[in-house]
């Protein structure tokens, strides 16, 4: 019995230590993002490259997925609203659920699968290959050169891609509103605009920024935890990705609580 409590206590201490380490690390990176000296020419080049890899390269696939998945989602939701006789809530459902909740969530899932895993592996490989040591040797701060551009890219990319996803959803909404409700574009636009609250949009963008911050920071943190053994790469990546998904769920729950109160 004692062993059980000991194990439980150790696990709890480890989780608390891990979480506090991550928060301290997040604080360090967050502060650097607001320091002018971080934005050297080298950092800006890495930032532009990162935005290209995360936001631009993914665009064709992202738009196809948005159109396909968005249309499916809108079609299902509109059909349900019609069947339940809740047509008057179409605007609230569209803005309150689909645009402000589902589009950031789906965007963050897509970007996590594609970019967060890549960042996690990249950091672990750099650690194993002693490339981080190279940067230190040449007096290049890894927070400025590697971490800040990636985290900033996460924030920018999630905000932009989530907005794009929302726009695609709203456009496909025009088509489905016509098909399902026989609603013309003017009526649809009025309903959407009347259901739009500025605070919801701000909260959505803020949530996207928080998502972007953590889905890049956590993979970086776990990537940097790799040892100098090749075998530590898959361990670092799997732990990092599990923690990223845990962070996504926590952020989603917290944002719902903020909305409720």
């Amino acid at each position: 019995m004692k062993t059980f409590w000991e194990k439980l206590g150790r696990a709890a201490i480890r989780i608390i230590e891990d979480s506090s380490d991550t928060i301290v690390f997040a604080g360090r990176v967050f502060v650097r993002i607001f320091q002018r000296k971080t934005y050297s020419s080298a950092m800006r080049e890495v930032l532009v490259n990162q935005i290209y890899f995360t936001s631009v390269q993914i665009l064709p696939v992202f738009i196809i997925v948005s159109v396909f998945f968005g249309s499916l989602l809108i079609g299902i939701v509109f059909t349900m609203l019609r069947d339940l006789g809740l047509t008057e809530f179409i605007g609230h459902v569209l803005m309150g659920l689909i645009v402000t909740e589902l589009s950031p969530f789906l965007t963050v899932l897509l970007i996590t699968l594609r970019s967060a895993s890549a960042i996690n592996t990249e950091m672990a490989v750099m650690k194993v290959n002693r490339e981080l040591k190279t940067l230190e040797t040449f007096r290049i701060d890894i927070v400025d050169y590697l971490l800040a551009p990636r985290v900033l890219n996460g924030i920018i990319s999630i905000v932009l891609l989530s907005s794009l996803f929302s726009i695609v959803l709203l456009i496909s909404g025009i088509l489905f509103a016509k098909l399902i409700f026989g609603m013309n574009i003017t009526v649809y636009t009025n309903i959407v605009l009347n259901s739009t609250h500025f605070s919801d949009i701000v909260l959505m963008l803020f949530k996207c920024a928080i998502y972007g911050f953590f889905i890049t920071l956590i993979p970086i943190r776990f990537g940097l935890r790799a040892s100098h053994e090749l075998t530590s790469i898959p361990i670092a990546v799997s732990r990092g990705m599990v923690n990223v998904f845990a962070a996504i769920v926590i952020i989603e729950v917290l944002s719902l609580l903020i909305k409720l109160y």
Binding site: A42, E45, R130, E131, F138, I140
Partner: peptide
Amino acid sequence: VDVPLISNQDVYMNIAMIKEYHENMPR
């Protein structure tokens, strides 16, 4: 050997990053 090149960057970036970082030389 202990100070390898950064493998996810082009050769020119490995060289240019020193000036870009320390002297803020334009890209």
